[in-house]
Every structure is written in structure tokens, then in C-alpha cells.
Design a protein around this nucleic acid. Structure first.
Lengths: 318, 318
DNA sequence: CTCTTCAGGTCAGAAAGTGGCCGGAATCAA
DNA sequence: TTGATTCCGGCCACTTTCTGACCTGAAGAG
């Protein structure tokens, strides 16, 4: 208990609560003399955690930023908030960091006490989220299991519905989770087909580690994301909605900056707006929010959808 | 260097990378004998971190979940992902945990090395986010400064544009950040007016700690959120859009679960959908995505907006 | 100037950490 | 069943570190 290591950890924890601790208080909290406290502070500094000290009447110690991340000592609330934030990020709320988010989430969930895990689940399901935009939803629990299996080289069993809609059971060596176009894939070595496969995570269910571990193979081409991309690129055509908006580029860009899409000037006071998407709800939202006159360039299905929605709205407004 | 504390920390770090470490490898990595490694494992267990061990040919050590959060040892990528996720959560991507997210963000940012902080900023600004829905944007940097000042009882100076549009400079003792209706407020004791004030964070600029610290006062009523609510409740009326949708409750709920809002059955195959909002873009998105016939119950401004949007869409679709 | 607070040297006794050695027990594969 | 592997933990002697007490300095704040 009165261990040095434990005390250092506690000190680090106290310092992360910041508050400019006066040395005397730290010493009493840790139940050591002030001399020892100073030595502990020194130890932290030697470990690379920069502890700033200020002297004088309102002096004290304060943990500042250094060159490496110190071990984060989180209280329950913070841990929950982080898990929730990471889930949202993994769900695609923030683009570009989905994979790392899942990885970090896996790390946190693994050491998170069950009671906190329950709170995360409860909060997550009770809370409303931003629109799913497109792509089927994938449970964070499923992702976490897979991420852990990838990291730990643990063989995975799951049920899968293949492209033809046939349900099967797979036994694979999972290597990497890849997030692509708002969908999750797991790149794995199929131990029964003896070949690499990219499984869509939304189509698999009940992933469970078997307990067996495997020796990771070299991924063909070396780049998991690239490999998955090449496997699926021909299968799911991405549709692009293009419209010509009667508004200044600057004005359109202000909206597009938060919704995604590209704008280019198209002469006069019009500009061309491109939105990559798989369904049409999203472009409709953007155009409704813009409120400017526009014309559909492509695709014609979007024009149809637009007419249907317009008529629906007119009927609704009497 | 060859400190015990440092070694324990490193061991914890290694274990968080999981991978079922075999004892021998851990021992060589930590440059100690296996006997000492076993002792270190014991130490961790005494500290409350449950380390599972499995024997036999494929045995090893593994950190499992216990009753408290262990210190998280994150690599750079993970730290960045967490910071980004928390920012998004603080931005309101996830409802209900904004305050805790900011608090956790402040804690992380404080100890985060500058190079990572730069990466977070770059990633955050490069990345497109879900729609702002409503409410003006507030920089995470501003929030972080305020959160830290609240936690550390540091007096804050900032420029503020008051309700009348007059710019002033304030010197306050910040007590709590409150997120309400997608807006941020800081509840503070105004040292010049000698009174409590709730400042809208989006209206203040360049917050900076003065270096002075203050003794926290008791918040009137004890509940900061309630206090802020009572202060601003009369000023910004929240509008509620109510529509009757011709669809099954279950169907509507499926959409509403991710977009927010409440549904109740209204006889036959219709149900009543309520959406609290400050602008109308959001309900329009929901109704367009639903695609079912509906009638507007209130407010009439929404009916007007709906008609305008419907006509716009019809013009656009030719 | 004075008070407060951090900084760090020295010292001696106490406490802990360490590696080597060993017998045990669980697990798995042959 | 047998043997290999791997974790477990007691014992011991030696080394290292840790600790508190005491003291002198130095840096801010009022």
C-alpha cells in the first residue's frame, strides 16, 4: 500500500486534477513528509513528466505538457465521456479517424470496469445521434470485439451473410479493421477458404474469439486499406449528386464546410455543387438548408426524388 | 531509470497493448529477471489492476477489467483520436455529455504534447463534421481554456459582446461551464458587477487566465445548470415543430431514434411527431427522410417554410 | 523587508527490491 | 500417460533505495 509506485501513480493522478497543488497539501494527502514529496516530484520529472513549480505565497506544483503522453488517470465520468466520444467518432461522426478510434475504444473498453461499460451502453442507446447519413449501422460492441481480436491475433468465429444473402459461419484470422466510405470491413484470412477476404462488418453477427491464437500473415500489397478498397471498389458504385446553385460560391461553401461536398464557380452568380452519397436524404437536407434556387444536373433519379419530396411538402402545407 | 515505478508504468503500458504477453518476453523487455517480473505483476494486482494469467504452452499475462480505471497509457494516435472524439462530443455530436467531454478534453489537452495538439487542430479543421444543426459554433480551444479556469479557480479575462451588441472586457471568476440547448454558457462571478452572470461562450473572445486565483463561491441554488437555465429561459424561446405523420409509430421511431424527437400514436395509422429545434432545417430533413404523408400541426411558420421548400424543389426538378 | 513556498544537500536507519534456486500446479500436445 | 511449457511463490543473501529530520538557499508576493 504505502508503496512508492502506488504513491507516484497517485501523485500523477492528483496532479492531473491540476488545481495548482501546494506542496504541503500533496504531502499530507500522500502521507509522506514534504521532503519525500519533493523527491517524488523529482522522480516524475526524471520519468519525463514535466512538473512546473511556482514559488511564493500562492505557489504550487502543476503538471504541464511534455514530449510524451503521461498515463491518463481518469475518473469515471471522464472515462465514460471518452468512450462515448470514441464511439461516435467510430460511427463516422468524424471522418478520417475511425480506425484509430475503434482501436482506442478497444483499449479503453478492455480495462473499463463493467459498471462503467454498462453506463456507456445506457447512455449511448438513450442518446440521440446525428443522422446516420448512409451506410448500415454497426454496433460498437461488435467493432470492439473485432478490434481486440485483430490486435491480439485471436482467431474469430462469426456468422456471416454473404453477397448472395446466404448465411454461413466463418472461422478467420482477423488482421485489420478498415473503414471505407462509411462502412466497416475486416480484412481477414479465411481459414476454411485458405484465402484473404474482406468481410463487411454490418453483415456479420456474434463475433467471438475462439481462444486460439494465430501468427499474423503478411497482407498482400502491405496496405490493408488499399487491399480492401481494391476488393470492393467494383461492387458498390458511389453515386454523385451534382446541382447548379444560383448563389455565390462563398455562401455555398459556408454550408458545405460542415456538410461535406465540393463547390466550384460556374459563371455568373451560379456555382456547381457536388455531393457524394449513397442515398438522397443528405443532398436534400443540404439544398433545403441552402434555400437558394438550383437545377439538378445529375442523376435523374435525384430529380424524381426531389419532385416527390416537393409534392409531399406542398400537400403537407395544404 | 531502472526505477521500480518507471518499470511498473512500462509494464502497465505493455499490458494495455494486450496481446497475451508471455512472462519471459515481458521480463526481457523490462530487463529484469522473471522472478522480478512476477513480483511486478503481483504489485500491479495489489494496486487493484487485475492481471489474468494463463498457464500452459500458450499462456501469458493479460490485463483485464477491474473495479477502477487503470491509468491509460496511450500512444500518439490514440490520444489524438480521443481528443478529436471528445471535441465532437463537446460540439454536441452526442447529447448529454457535453460538459464532461469538455472537462475530459481539458485534462487531456493540458498534458498533451504540443506536436499532438497541433495534429488535433489540423485534423479537426480538415475534417468535415455533421451538420451544426443550430447554435453558433464555439471553438474547442476557447472551451478548454474556460474549463481549465473553472477547475483551477483561475480568474479569467475576456472580451464580450453583450445582448445589446456592445463590446466590453470582463474580469470574472468562472465557476461552471453549462451546455444548454446546444449553446455553451459559463456561469461566473463578475468581479466588476459584483454579481453572478451567465455568459454565452459564443459571444466571448480571447479568454485568458490572469494568473490570479479565487476562492469559489457558493452557486445560488446550488445547481449551476438550473441557475443558467433560469437566467436565459425567458430570452430564447425554443420552438417546437409538431406534425401528424401517416405512418406506423414503429416506422417513425426507427428514424427518430437517430435524429431526436418524440413520437406518440394518434389513432389509426397516424402518429404525432414532435421535434424541438431552433431552425427548420432539421425537421425538414427528418420529414424528407421519412417520406411519408404528413400534416403540420404547428407552427404556421413551419408550414410556410415547407411550402417555400416544396416550391423550390419543384422548380428545381423542372 | 518578511513571509511563504519550492529546492536540494547530508546522514543514518529502515525498508524494499533483486536474482538465483527450487518444488508445485495448471495446461496442452503427443 | 507423459513430457514440455508456463505461471506461482517461498526462501535467502545481498544491494539499493527510500525515508524523515535538519538545514541552507533561492524565488515570488505583499
Amino acid at each position: 500500500m504505502a508503496n512508492t509506485s502506488a504513491r507516484i501513480l497517485r501523485l500523477l493522478s492528483l496532479l492531473q486534477t491540476h488545481r495548482y497543488w501546494p506542496g504541503a497539501e500533496l504531502a499530507t494527502r500522500l502521507e509522506v513528509s514534504e521532503r519525500t514529496l519533493r523527491r517524488d516530484i523529482d522522480r516524475l520529472r526524471e520519468l519525463g513528466y514535466p512538473v512546473a513549480a511556482s514559488r511564493g505565497v500562492a505557489g504550487g506544483y502543476q503538471l504541464r505538457s511534455g514530449t510524451a503522453m503521461p498515463p491518463l488517470l481518469l475518473d469515471d465520468e471522464e472515462a465514460v465521456a471518452i468512450a462515448i466520444g470514441l464511439r461516435a467518432a467510430a460511427d463516422g461522426a468524424v471522418e478520417g479517424i475511425e480506425e484509430t478510434s475503434v482501436q482506442a475504444l478497444a483499449k479503453i473498453v478492455q480495462v473499463m470496469p463493467p459498471r462503467l461499460r454498462r453506463r456507456v451502453d445506457a447512455l449511448h442507446s438513450a442518446t440521440s445521434r446525428p443522422p446516420a447519413r448512409n451506410g448500415p449501422k454497426v454496433g460498437a460492441a461488435v467493432l470492439t470485439v473485432i478490434a481486440q481480436a485483430c490486435r491480439d491475433n485471436e482467431r474469430l468465429r462469426f456468422s456471416y451473410i454473404d453477397r448472395a444473402g446466404v448465411p454461413t459461419t466463418r472461422l478467420v484470422d482477423p488482421h485489420r479493421l478498415v473503414s471505407l466510405r462509411r462502412r466497416w470491413y475486416v480484412l481477414a484470412w479465411d481459414t476454411e477458404q485458405h484465402d484473404w477476404r474482406a468481410f463487411r462488418v454490418d453483415r456479420l453477427d456474434e463475433p467471438a474469439v475462439t481462444g486460439a491464437r494465430f501468427r499474423p500473415r503478411e497482407i498482400p500489397g502491405g496496405d490493408a486499406a488499399e487491399f480492401v478498397r481494391s476488393r470492393i471498389t467494383a461492387q458498390t458504385p458511389q453515386r454523385e449528386v451534382v446541382v447548379e446553385v444560383r448563389a455565390d460560391v462563398a455562401e455555398v461553401e459556408k454550408i458545405v464546410a460542415v456538410t461535406g461536398g465540393t463547390v466550384e464557380a460556374a459563371g455568373g452568380r451560379t456555382c456547381r455543387l457536388r455531393i457524394g452519397t449513397e442515398d438522397f436524404d443528405w443532398p436534400i437536407f443540404i439544398l433545403a438548408a441552402l434555400g437558394a434556387e438550383f437545377e439538378v444536373v445529375q442523376p435523374s433519379e435525384f430529380r424524381d426524388r426531389l419532385r416527390a419530396t416537393g409534392e409531399l411538402f406542398l400537400r403537407a402545407s395544404g
